[in-house]
Design a binder for these strands. Sequence first.
DNA 1: AGCAGTATTGTACTGATGGGCAGGGATGGC
DNA 2: GCCATCCCTGCCCATCAGTACAATACTGCT
Lengths: 201, 201
Amino acid sequence: MTQLFVCQGRDEIPRWRAAFAEARLVTPQQARAQAGHGDSVWVMSNIEEWQGLVTLLAGRGAIVNVLSYAPTSLQALQALNAGARGYAHALSPAELLTQVDLVTHHQGIWVPTELMAQVMGGAYRALGGGAQQQDEALSGLTDRERAVALAVAEGQSNKEVARRLEITERTVKAHLGAIFRKLGVRDRLQLILRLAQREVV
Amino acid sequence: MTQLFVCQGRDEIPRWRAAFAEARLVTPQQARAQAGHGDSVWVMSNIEEWQGLVTLLAGRGAIVNVLSYAPTSLQALQALNAGARGYAHALSPAELLTQVDLVTHHQGIWVPTELMAQVMGGAYRALGGGAQQQDEALSGLTDRERAVALAVAEGQSNKEVARRLEITERTVKAHLGAIFRKLGVRDRLQLILRLAQREVV
DNA sequence: AGCAGTATTGTACTGATGGGCAGGGATGGC
DNA sequence: GCCATCCCTGCCCATCAGTACAATACTGCT
């Protein structure tokens, strides 16, 4: 059972070899050429176009796992969506890697337990209660804050929101500050990503 | 390792015993009383309040799998969302059940492969992914511009994108400028909305 | 009357963002 | 060789975004 670790350059991780004695570090190009059906391929998420590589190798029948230095639920979903069967931290101990390998070779999915809730929560809202999701996110806001949040979610600048609501730019910022605090996001980018999972009415 | 099969009345399935010799058929009440940390519990989805039972037992540390006579992606998500680690057809062959047990006892998730695509596809789109629609919007971009666009679409700042691609912030800006011009958007907010398939214009 | 919450606006500051101007290096077609 | 394109980078500047530290006013509730 070949174990291929696909990384960009020199992030050789000793515990990879501790987990799999026969592990080989390869470049994305080498992975494309060598990986085949049944092989275990570990793809670092910091290489370019990793999702395309995952899809290619998974389609070829390889068992693909994605390793990340900064695991997030979104990236976990991107990995699974691309065809990966496992997603873990790049610095996971050797025992964990062998466990991931065992699970994914038996038709299982492996995602860190701390990400599972978010991943499945998002998935559940997508197929089940997607509609009431936006209410959930916006329910804690006042009428005015909600109006600002919706305008910002359409990509409007503070100045444009101010014109639309006929208030000053300073007031828009005040509302936005309250929105960020209540929703626990740090800026309008994150706000948009949060609200982007709902359908605009 | 105790194997408990929670079912309503008399749907005793022979292959359950074929998979686990020490399997015991129990009622929901018995399961509540007996199941503990590390036990494998198989819950039929045709019993009442099965989701509540799954959550209770999972919270207690049991490995809970849900069995259904009519598996659907929505029910799979309900099961996982309730805390189950596996979801399979009630009439699965014995070898499959042992495989599910193996996977779920190693922190893995087990869902039938034919449901995985729907489950993960829905979740991914819900969180702002949408791979193939993105390709359409990104087709006119160069490789480097596409990498920048995707990173920005995840909410990363110029500084973060620069670190990820190992280039300077100025170069990121240069790529972004080209992206904005090609896609006809004015800033990164509009870009995010464009890549999330929203009706921005 | 006093308090809590909301809405509004001001000044001022820091950091992020977008872009103009000006290059250098690599690649590939003609 | 020339030119186009892409990739990378520097300096500089105008603007935007977010926030700290304020103030004023209205509302509902006790």
